[in-house]
Design a protein around this nucleic acid. Structure first.
Length: 449
DNA sequence: ACGGTGCCATGTAATCCCTT
DNA sequence: AAGGGATTACATGGCACCGT
């Protein structure tokens, strides 16, 4: 199993041509089980070996927060992982187990939820336990088959679960190990997903639309030259929503948002796109293909999802570019606040958001940020040298008193004994021990007094 | 694990610009 | 000049990536 060229036992995705198609993260967990290793081991040994995938660092206990999301995601990482998995398993079409097909019409933000979500009833009835890609989509809050809200808190320990952990099993809490579907409690009352639901009918519609899109990929795919703003323009034109204000009112969005979507300055979150489809009375697939359903009466529906906007308090102050610019260049010229990070300087010294400074003075912003990182590195090197020097001194003193310098004997005299575990500290200890005449440092390192 | 950097969507307030 | 829609400016929150 260690080598990346040995064969692996493979499993095939569940419901490959349906709306409940298995997600890539789920497939990887099941593949790992089939091969008698933990998901973290499988990923580390077999999958994350290609160029660009080394960044997926795994520990056996837990995978990083975002790893599970990246795997089901629509970015470069997902694409590479799909290729690698197809190579290893000789399966094809695994692209459809991720959200890569969503990329042309949505952004990563608002596409996948951070936590695991599951349908208790579906898990119970599945013959082979697996997580459909649909459950990982952030706009999906109910199971389209049972019309019941998805759960996102473990019924036993009441905690939310990461999408993929080092030792995860399908249908089990990776923390407390209890089943996510066998208890009769159902959804935990405090579950945030349950709390966010206003209309079950609308949520079911959303889930079905996204399920249909997942299924749609098996037959067709979106054309290469799809662009969101052109599609939106087409529908706004069809429903005669000419001004941004009228369109915004009908769609339950802000006029400014409309302006940005139409002028290709931004793409709305997936949930908003579904809201648009709902108001237009069309399916997501029709929206994307600019296909007007036959029998459409041309009327708009009432938006269900409107009025859910965040209250962002904005107090606008004029930017005194000249003053800020001169302050910035003074900071750089006189090397002021060299141990403060860029954002810290922005908030504490310049009294501005870092975004503002970056927008107006990109060059200076980069210089200040880089300066801090370099200084921090320098300080780390200095501290390392100081630690090694202290280690050496203590070792000589112990030696003079007839005590063998090793981890145990040195620890009480050093301010940060845990640093003795670092490779550079071990090397420094070895050097001084060799110098003091201990013949086999690697062996004696373990000796007590 | 955690903090810093960088990017994205989207909110409110100000400003631009065209029409009347 | 006034008024309103379009656009820009400043702000917030969320998340990925990266190094320690």
């Amino acid at each position: 199993m260690k080598s990346s060229c040995t064969e692996i036992l493979r499993v095939t995705p569940c419901d490959p041509d349906g709306a409940q198609r298995e997600s890539l993260a789920s497939l990887l967990v099941r593949t790992a089980r089939e091969n008698d290793v933990s998901p973290a081991q499988l990923l580390e040994w077999k999958f994350a070996t290609g160029t660009g995938l080394q960044m997926l660092k795994f520990s056996t206990r837990a995978l990083g927060r975002s790893v599970g999301q990246s795997i089901n995601g629509c970015s470069e990482v997902a694409r590479m992982l799909v290729n690698r998995t197809e190579q290893l398993t000789r399966l094809d079409g695994l692209r459809r187990s991720t959200t890569l097909a969503f990329a042309p019409f949505t952004t990563f933000n608002g596409l996948l939820r951070q936590q695991l979500a599951w349908s208790v009833q579906s898990l119970r009835s599945q013959e082979t336990k697996y997580y459909p890609l649909l459950w990982a989509l952030e706009p999906v809050r109910v199971c389209p088959e049972t019309r019941k809200p998805l759960g996102s808190l473990c019924p036993t320990c009441r905690q939310s679960l990461v999408l993929l952990s080092g030792g995860s099993h399908i249908g089990r809490c990776y923390r407390c190990g209890s089943s996510l579907f066998e208890t009769n409690i159902g959804a935990v009352p405090a579950d945030p997903i349950v709390g966010s639901i206003r209309s079950i009918d609308y949520e079911v519609w959303v889930a079905r639309e996204l399920g249909n899109f997942i299924r749609f990929q098996t037959v067709e795919s979106l054309s290469e030259d799809f662009s969101y703003h052109r599609a939106l323009e087409h529908w706004l034109d069809l429903f005669e929503l000419r001004s941004n204000r009228d369109a915004a009112k009908a769609l339950g969005a802000s006029p400014l948002a409309l302006f940005r979507w139409r002028s290709n300055k931004a793409i709305p979150r997936l949930r908003m796109t579904l809201n648009l489809c709902w108001v237009f009375g069309i399916s997501l697939v029709d929206f994307l293909l600019l296909r007007r359903p036959s029998g459409h009466d041309g009327r708009l529906r009432q938006s269900i999802d409107a009025g859910m906007r965040h209250a962002a308090v904005s107090t606008r102050r004029r930017i005194d570019k000249a003053r800020l610019g001169s302050e910035l260049s003074t900071i750089l010229r006189e090397n002021r606040y060299s141990m403060m990070s860029f954002s810290e300087i922005c908030s504490r010294k310049l009294r501005r958001r870092d975004v503002v400074i970056r927008q107006n003075f990109p060059e200076e912003a980069r210089l200040v940020a880089r300066r801090y990182l370099e200084n921090r590195k320098l300080m780390a090197d200095i501290k390392r040298d100081q630690f090694c020097a202290a280690l050496e001194t203590v070792a000589r003193f112990l030696h003079a008193r007839g005590i063998v310098p090793n981890y145990k004997t040195l620890s009480p005299y050093l301010d940060r004994p845990s640093k003795l575990r670092c490779a550079w500290a071990i090397a420094a200890l070895r050097r001084v021990r060799e110098e003091l005449g201990y013949e086999d440092p690697s062996e004696q390192l373990m000796l007590l007094i």
